[in-house]
């Protein structure tokens, strides 16, 4: 009985969201508003249990690391964002979080640039490796805006556009398949778990 009620609630809300395919309507607006509220409400206890308790409460009250009171006080300055005269205090917790950006410079340069470049600079032993190399270089040339895309240079960057279009097409295809997979899941729920029409 309890499972039937649970399935009914889930099915009703699923249909409320699907009703948007017809047009924007009160059922969809209700479900949308509920989703926003429930999602935020879901995050609060999770964050409290997984972040606040182990990193704020336990060190201060159980481990007696009273130094942690200072970052906790800095963190609580976030609420001054909503005041008119003291909103500048909210900059302090943000600046401490932004300090980590120093780590980002060598890390992004290493993982996103150097490693990728090393992987692209292989001996051109096969057609595929050659194509990957040509594709990478022509796309990078396409994003070099200091030179007008005209003449031979324009033709080279055009090759880059073709490579990018194929890449975007592949990403598009994957995204469509992921969404259709979700859609199949919802249809299976409605026809199977809720209505019992399919096993």
């Amino acid at each position: 009985m309890f499972e039937t009620i649970s399935n009914f609630v889930a099915a009703f809300l699923t249909l409320c969201i699907f009703s948007f395919l017809y047009k924007d309507n009160p059922f969809y607006k209700f479900a949308e508003a509920l989703l926003v509220g429930v999602s935020m409400g879901y995050a609060i206890p999770l964050l409290f249990e997984n972040v606040f308790m182990p990193y704020v409460y336990t060190p201060i009250f159980l481990d007696h690391k009273f130094i942690i009171i200072i970052p906790a006080l800095i963190g609580s300055l976030y609420i001054f964002r909503f005041t008119k005269n003291l909103s500048w205090l909210a900059r302090y917790p943000i600046t401490f979080s932004m300090g980590i950006v120093g780590m980002g410079i060598p890390m992004s340069l290493h993982s996103s640039v150097l490693v990728q470049m090393r992987s692209a600079m292989l001996p051109l032993a096969s057609i595929n490796i050659t194509l990957i190399f040509i594709g990478t270089v022509t796309i990078l040339l396409y994003f070099f805006f200091s030179k007008a895309h005209k003449g031979i240079y324009g033709k080279v960057t055009n090759v880059g556009i073709w490579f990018m279009m194929i890449g975007f097409g592949a990403s598009f295809g994957y995204t469509v398949m992921a969404r259709i997979s979700l859609l199949i899941g919802r249809i299976q729920f409605l026809l199977g778990d809720w209505l019992g029409l399919i096993k």
Binding site: S112, V113, N128, L131, G135, F143
Partner: peptide, 27 residues
């Protein structure tokens, strides 16, 4: 083949661009 060759080239070039952008913004 599309996923392993032209898609890889596109993703790699974009990744390099993103990496340079991240580095520049961080700096």
């Amino acid at each position: 083949w599309i996923l392993n060759v032209p898609n890889l080239a596109a993703k790699r070039a974009i990744m390099i661009g993103v990496g340079l952008g991240m580095t520049a913004t961080s700096l």
